[in-house]
């Protein structure tokens, strides 16, 4: 990839959204201890390692009822 410069308009927003989601879900996982299913280690791994899929799954169905 010789012309990384050309991809920066894509990569910056992608990185921001990705990191934002990851951070938001991670903070939520760490601040709550009840989950609809799974446990804390599982959700930490999923949120960190699966791109946007982990955070989306966590917020949509993994998050416990408040």
């Amino acid at each position: 990839m010789e012309n990384l410069q050309e991809y920066l308009p894509f990569l910056i927003p992608l990185a921001v959204i990705q990191a934002g989601l990851m951070l938001a879900s991670l903070i939520h996982v760490l601040r709550h201890d009840t989950y609809r299913f799974g446990n804390r280690p599982l959700w930490i791994v999923l949120c960190l390692a699966t791109g946007i899929i982990g955070p989306v799954l966590y917020f949509a169905i993994g998050r416990g009822d408040e």
Partner: peptide
């Protein structure tokens, strides 16, 4: 408050950025 809005917005924003990126990067 249940993060539905945030998740939807983030995912669809991501898809909007990713689509042209993939179109550009795949042939290369």
């Amino acid at each position: 408050r249940t993060y539905r809005l945030v998740v939807l917005a983030a995912v669809f924003l991501l898809l909007g950025v990713m689509s042209p990126l993939f179109a550009k990067i795949l042939p290369e």
